[in-house]
Nucleic acid binder design. Structure first.
Length: 282
DNA sequence: AAAGCACCCTGTACGC
DNA sequence: TGCGTACAGGGTGCTT
């Protein structure tokens, strides 16, 4: 469930506590978490390195190191990056542990990668572009303008919801925020991308950016299952502000009709058939 | 280009 | 109680 707001929240926490610190050791509990290089090389190449920068690209956590290497981490479904003191007992789903040098303010001397479902992945590379260059634009960047969004959508005929989940098209949205954004923009999830009117594209552009910004402001969304955690272990509060995701059968906050739930591309899709008509003039 | 499906995983919910 | 199954959704990769 980590989508852009959750990854951004984690990155902000790590940036504050990790930048400038040295990785004194690495332990890999489950080698499947490491895409490349092999786990032995991964440990050897990270030991002794200092973190120079922590950033985000799409749903990737980007950790730059003092020797030009970059550690890329994707949390996928259940990945968590937790800054904890060594005394804090290690959770049963801890897959990779980074031991950090002493730090003046906090006792957090471990960065633990917990990942119940083992979907998360790490890549240590000299060439992060090889992984990141496939990604679409950042929805919160200044260069993601309405005009650009219009051009992007005009040449696509797929379902708008599936397209917005495609990270090569646009990064950051996952199944939670895509449902929210489409409801806010009053656009049916099955609409063909190139069928959106200028006014609708403007509304969608605004909805995507506002829902992502609002969720970042609340530290992301932690669902009932508690899968997402900030780097300090706290939950995100945006779950209280979700308007359609997970609200099947409940009255639409706009018109009162029950929120419907259907499958689109194997994913649960929540929408209001009255507020989100299948055609622009519906 | 787009859609569908299997797969990667594990915990939870549910029907019988 | 317990077993089998569906479901959750971040992706990739293959086929149609």
């Amino acid at each position: 469930m980590p989508e852009l707001p959750e990854v951004e929240t984690v990155v902000r926490g790590l940036r504050r506590s990790l930048t400038g610190r040295r990785i004194t050791g690495v332990r890999v509990n489950w080698s499947g978490s490491i895409t490349r290089p092999d786990p032995q090389s991964f440990v050897r190449r990270l030991r002794g390195r200092r973190v120079t920068r922590v950033d985000r690209r799409g749903k990737w956590v980007v950790i730059e190191l003092d020797d030009g290497q970059t550690l890329l981490i994707h949390l996928r479904m259940t990945g968590q990056l937790l800054l904890e003191p060594a005394e804090c007992p290690e959770g049963k789903y801890t897959r990779v542990v980074f031991q950090l040098n002493d730090h003046r303010e906090s006792g957090t001397d471990r960065l633990r990668f917990s990942d119940m479902r083992k979907f998360g992945r790490m890549v240590l590379t000299d060439d992060p572009a090889s992984v990141l260059e496939e990604l679409g634009p950042e929805p919160l960047d200044d260069d993601f303008t309405v005009e650009r969004f219009k051009r992007m959508l005009a040449e696509r005929r797929g379902r708008i919801k599936s397209l917005l989940l495609n990270q090569r098209f646009l990064v950051g949205l996952g199944n939670i925020y895509v449902n929210e954004a489409l409801w806010l923009a009053r656009i049916h999830p099955l609409r063909s991308a190139d069928s959106l009117s200028g006014v609708e594209v403007e509304a969608l552009h605004r909805a995507i950016r506002s829902v992502l910004r609002a969720a970042i402001g609340q530290g992301g969304t932690t669902l009932e299952n508690g899968n997402f955690r900030q780097a300090n272990g706290e939950a995100g509060e945006f779950v209280d502000e979700l308007l359609v995701y997970g609200h099947e059968g409940e009255p639409c906050g706009c018109c009162g009709e029950p929120i419907e739930r259907v499958k689109v591309g194997q994913r649960s899709t929540y929408f209001c058939s009255r507020c989100q008509p299948t055609s622009a003039d519906g």
